[in-house]
C-alpha cells in the first residue's frame, strides 16, 4: 500500500533531523495524509473539559466555534463497559476494574424496582457510632436506631 511506503521512507529520514518539530518532508506527509481539512467533511475531535458542579471551575478554555468540533464521548457506549475490553500491551488498571465493576453493578440494578438489594444486604451491618453526620438530618430508612 501507498501508506506503508510513505512510512518507510519517513523512517529512513528520521536520523537526518534532530529538532523536535517535523521536517519539511514529514510536514508534507502529515498535511497530505493525516491533517483534517475542511474538505474532509469531518469534525476535529476534542476531549470534553473537566467541569465541577459543586466547586468553582478555574479551567476556562475558549470553546471552538459551535459545530466545528466533535466532542469525544465517554458515555455514549456505556452498555459496552460492563466487561473488560481487550488489551494489547497495557493491562487494565485497578481504577479501570473499579469502573467495570460499577458498570456491571448498575446493569444488574437497572431492573430493580423501589427496594434495593445493596441496601438490604448492608442494613444489618450499620452501626450509628461509625457515622458522623452534622446537623439534624432526616434518617434514611436504612437507619435502625440502636
Amino acid at each position: 500500500k501507498m501508506l506503508s511506503k510513505e512510512r518507510r521512507s519517513s523512517q529512513k529520514q528520521m536520523h537526518s533531523h534532530e529538532s523536535w518539530s517535523l521536517s519539511p518532508e514529514e510536514l508534507e506527509i502529515w498535511d497530505r495524509l493525516y491533517r483534517i481539512k475542511e474538505s474532509d467533511g469531518i469534525k476535529e475531535p476534542v476531549l470534553p473539559q473537566v467541569q465541577f458542579e459543586t466547586i468553582e471551575n478555574l479551567e476556562e478554555t475558549p470553546k471552538p466555534e459551535e459545530g466545528a468540533a466533535q466532542e469525544l464521548s465517554l458515555s455514549e457506549w456505556s452498555l459496552w463497559q460492563n466487561q473488560p475490553l481487550p488489551t494489547s500491551l497495557v493491562d487494565h488498571s485497578d481504577r479501570c476494574h473499579l469502573f467495570i465493576a460499577a458498570m456491571e453493578m448498575m446493569e444488574l440494578m437497572r431492573h430493580q424496582q423501589g427496594d434495593c438489594s445493596y441496601e438490604r444486604e448492608l442494613r444489618p451491618h450499620l452501626r450509628m457510632e461509625d457515622v458522623d453526620i452534622p446537623g439534624n438530618q432526616r434518617h434514611l430508612s436504612t437507619a435502625n436506631p440502636p
Binding site: Y118, E119, E121, L122, R123, H125, L126, R127, D130, V131, D132, I133, Q137, R138, L140, T142, A143
Partner: peptide, 17 residues
C-alpha cells in the same frame, strides 16, 4: 460490611443534601 454500611449511610445523607 460494617464499613460499607457506614459509607452507604453517609453517601445517602450527602445525596439528600
Amino acid at each position: 460490611q460494617r464499613l460499607k454500611a457506614a459509607v452507604h449511610y453517609t453517601v445517602g445523607c450527602l445525596c439528600q443534601e
